[in-house]
Amino acid sequence: MSGLLLVTQGAISQGVLWGIMVLGVYITYKLLDIPDLTADGSFTLGGCVCTVAILSGVNPVLATIMGLFAGLLAGAVTGILHTVFEIPAILAGILTQIGLWSVNLRIMGGKSNNPLLQTESMISFVSENTGVSQSQAALIVGIILVVIVIAALYWFFGTEVGAALRATGDNADMIRALGVNINNTKLIALSLSNGLIGLSGAMVAQMQKYADINMGRGAIVIGLAAIVIGEVLMNRVKNFGFKLFSAVVGAMIYFLIRAYAIQLGLNVNDMQLISALLVAAALAIPVAMRKWREKAAYTEDDLYASEHAASSEGDKHADRDKGRA
């Protein structure tokens, strides 16, 4: 039983730290309507930069912030490819992501794995100074970060710039006609999003005590899956802050499902397929349901026969038909 509890706790810690990445994906996917594939690369980038910085003696907090800024830069690259050079957003993201694979290997000195076993991290610092376990420390740090990030995003998207950014995702023609340079708003959104994703990568690397060239693989799909799960569970919330919160909850649920599935003997490598199926199903089911309902609702009988019978005495239709003839 305590084993299961431990697994649950570990999964929730993971979910919270990955939740920061999900908030980044939320900005591009939900607010800007761009599925930004930079995520897989910028997540790893955040982890690589952070671990390399810590190993070379940089303070873990500063190293984490460096991870955030590295992600920000990666997002800016995608943003410039997309806005200045008008490369479709998905392709721009893929280009950055592919390029980052080499960059990340370079940062880690050619190794595909960069362990943080002997060194201090933000999480080990908390754990040593409070006496809680590593995974509890990760949870505490994660919750604090998530609260700060959600509060900051809530504020930012309520400002004039933030509103212009949301409007860019909603109706680009309109906001351009109202004097906003949508290249700027898109650039800000992509940078902000990938900054958060880099921050998340830095935190996850500190929690798992290593950065790995493949640690971000499938990050975008995990992000979408978490958003979808959050929306299904909390579909009634209207407040923007709660919507962001629901995305983090979605991430926690995702990692819980994943941890239990692995406990039940599922191969870790199958999780990518399961994530992909989950997102595909979440996007496909509403469409399939609508089509099915439209088909099922059709009938050859006159559905409104009673109304027609009642009004036919008013001669409305008869008049119209006469006019035609």
Partner: peptide, 9 residues
């Protein structure tokens, strides 16, 4: 046509 800042929307 005005500059948009970080004031409340």
């Amino acid at each position: 046509g005005k500059r948009r800042g970080l004031g409340w929307q």
